[in-house]
Simulated assay, not measured.
Amino acid sequence: MHPTFPLYYVGFEVGSGFAGLKLLPADGLTLVQDLVTLPSFLADGDIVTLLKGSDPHAKLADVLQPSDYVLSLEDHTYFLGRLLAHGTHSHNAFNDERRYWSEHAQVLLLCLACILIPERCFELRLVTALPVSLYERTRRQRVKQALSQQYRFSFNGRSREVIVKCGYVAMEGQGILIHCGDASSQQAVIDVGERTTDLVAAEGQRLLIPLCKGEQFGVGQLVEDLQQLVWRYKRKLSIEKAHALLTAYAHHQPYPSIPTGASSLPDEEIMQVITGSLKRLARALSSFLIGTWNVEGAPAGTQFDKIYLGGGGAYYFEEVVRQALQECHIVTVPDPEHASICGYAELAASLDEDRWEEAP
């Protein structure tokens, strides 16, 4: 550790819809906020253009509003958060596996950390994850090498210096095992995320690789169907607003108003699209669960003492999971969308000092 840099243990997920970061300060102090999520999109930014409509003497900090983030790294400026609409070429690199070890991941990590950490200089000791479908030695090493660096950059107009050491690259969903599981039983995780659903199996905390599998479906398909619905009215629906509709559906709350010109999007159409999407995805998810965890002569999934359901999709697919694995002990974890990054942070804080000295 740098002698003057505050140290934080970190759980981090790049995410395909939302990136997330959880902090555990090494000094044990309680933070006002220790967890943050952000749309996992970057846009190319131009600070000069951003300042054009303001006072001629205004500085960047003068024009930024809450949830506006500007990060400049290696002669490139990115807009994040609410500033995405003010940039160009907004993307989340979903179809590129390099997103987990490219500058895309670096920028998201640094931005999330700077949102939470006030110090100009600090050190992060990090655990992050790869989807099951990408989980192998070479890619894990690429992630560790790409993220483990000493960064000098600016965030919202203020210079920062951050040392990052990546001590371990987990399997997506493994954080739920760390956060909620135990040390000895046969256990598994169903992690339904934005774009991927990962099945993780373990004996205690040791992964059972043949029973781990991932597929590319998740909450993102629900978001896309809602966006298509709104597009029929010649309007665009942001990911954030689509998630607000889904959250209202899951918690039986009134839907936020979505303007469609002179009126608003009808509640019955929202309900129809969401229920139709869930029905379609339910068949795929059920087949995936049963096919992966099939047991000869016994119901699927019964080789496990307990199965944990997590990820943002837990709110929408709990009944589907319970129907598909009727004979299993299913536990929907508290705050399922954050359970994985909490587990990664806990793992980071528990790793031996030698692991950090070996970090690239």
Rank of each mutant, 00 (worst) to 15 (best):
Y255E: 02
H243N: 09
Y255I: 05
E269N: 05
Q221W: 09
S257A: 15
L237R: 03
T292H: 05
S257H: 11
T247W: 13
K279L: 13
T275M: 14
F304Y: 04
R232V: 00
G313K: 00
L278T: 05
F217K: 09
G276W: 07
I274G: 02
D305K: 04
G312V: 03
Q221K: 08
S287K: 07
H252K: 13
H252D: 15
S277W: 10
L222K: 00
H243Q: 07
L246V: 07
E224W: 08
I239V: 15
N294I: 09
G276T: 12
S264P: 00
A282T: 04
E240C: 03
L285Y: 08
L285D: 04
F304S: 01
S286C: 09
N294Y: 14
Y233M: 15
G220R: 15
G261Q: 04
F288D: 04
I270D: 05
F304A: 02
D305Q: 06
P256N: 11
Q253K: 12
E224H: 12
S286V: 03
H252P: 06
L309C: 10
L289P: 12
G218H: 12
G301E: 04
G312R: 04
Q303L: 15
S264I: 12
D267F: 03
N294R: 08
L285K: 00
Q303I: 10
D225Y: 02
L245N: 01
Y233P: 15
S277Q: 15
R280K: 09
Q303G: 06
G220N: 14
G261P: 01
E296H: 10
P299W: 11
G313Y: 00
I274T: 03
I258W: 09
K234P: 02
R232Y: 05
P299M: 08
L281M: 13
I258Y: 12
T260C: 14
P256V: 11
S264T: 14
H251P: 03
P266D: 08
V223E: 15
A300Y: 04
T302M: 14
E224Q: 12
P256G: 10
T292A: 06
S263T: 07
L237N: 00
I290V: 15
A282P: 10
S263Q: 04
A300D: 07
L245C: 02
G297P: 11
S286A: 13
K236I: 01
R232N: 09
G297C: 10
Q228P: 02
L245V: 01
H251R: 14
G311Y: 06
G311N: 07
F304I: 01
V273M: 00
D225G: 00
G261Y: 05
L226V: 02
S263L: 02
G301R: 05
H251F: 13
R280Y: 10
L226G: 06
H243D: 06
G291T: 09
H243I: 01
I274P: 08
L226W: 06
G301M: 05
P254N: 05
S238W: 09
I258R: 08
A262D: 08
N294Q: 10
Q228D: 08
L222D: 03
T292D: 04
L245S: 00
S286K: 10
G218E: 13
G297H: 12
G220K: 13
D267E: 11
S287W: 05
G276Y: 07
E240I: 09
G310W: 01
L285T: 03
A262P: 00
A284C: 09
